[in-house]
């Protein structure tokens, strides 16, 4: 029974890792790629570690898997955040079909003063 549940979690984890990497290839922009890759790969690794914890029960391996899961959940979004800020500072702008960009004004006070003429449009790709 344990091995079947563990196999299901492992399947979900690997599926989401593959989906994240497909997103890394297909999406048009650095920021969108970062979103897809970070979310899906983090949940995929967490699913695989949960599979280890389910299969091994109360043992040294499940302790290490728990510690690894906590580290992944803390470090992966922080790394993504730093990478997004670095990409913006190195003057990579958003892709063509973006809607609005408040960050280009720099400080929040100036962003509130600027008139924003961009409107939400429903375009496809």
């Amino acid at each position: 029974m344990n091995s079947i549940i563990s196999m299901i979690f492992l399947f979900i984890g690997v599926l989401f890792i593959v989906l994240g990497c497909i997103g890394l290839v297909r999406l048009p922009d650095v920021y969108n790629r970062l979103q897809a890759a970070t979310k899906c790969v983090t949940l995929g690794i967490c699913g695989m570690l949960i599979a280890v914890m389910v299969e091994k029960g109360f043992s040294p391996m499940s302790g290490k898997a728990l510690l690894c899961m906590i580290f992944i959940l803390i470090t992966s979004p922080t790394s993504a955040h730093a990478m997004a800020r670095g990409a913006y500072r190195s003057k990579v702008r958003l892709c063509k079909n973006s809607v609005c960009d408040y960050y280009e004004f720099g400080r929040p006070e100036e962003a509130e003063k600027q008139p924003l003429e961009c409107e939400c449009k429903n375009d496809k790709s």
Binding site: L10, I17, G20, L24, A37, T42, I45, M48, A80, M83
Partner: peptide, 23 residues
């Protein structure tokens, strides 16, 4: 930045290989 993002994701996927080997 595209290459940096891909390198970062590659590092995380390698953790998946380690977990699969351990299991």
């Amino acid at each position: 930045p595209d290459r940096s993002v891909a390198i970062d994701v590659l590092g995380t996927v390698m953790v998946g290989f380690c977990v699969l080997s351990a299991l």
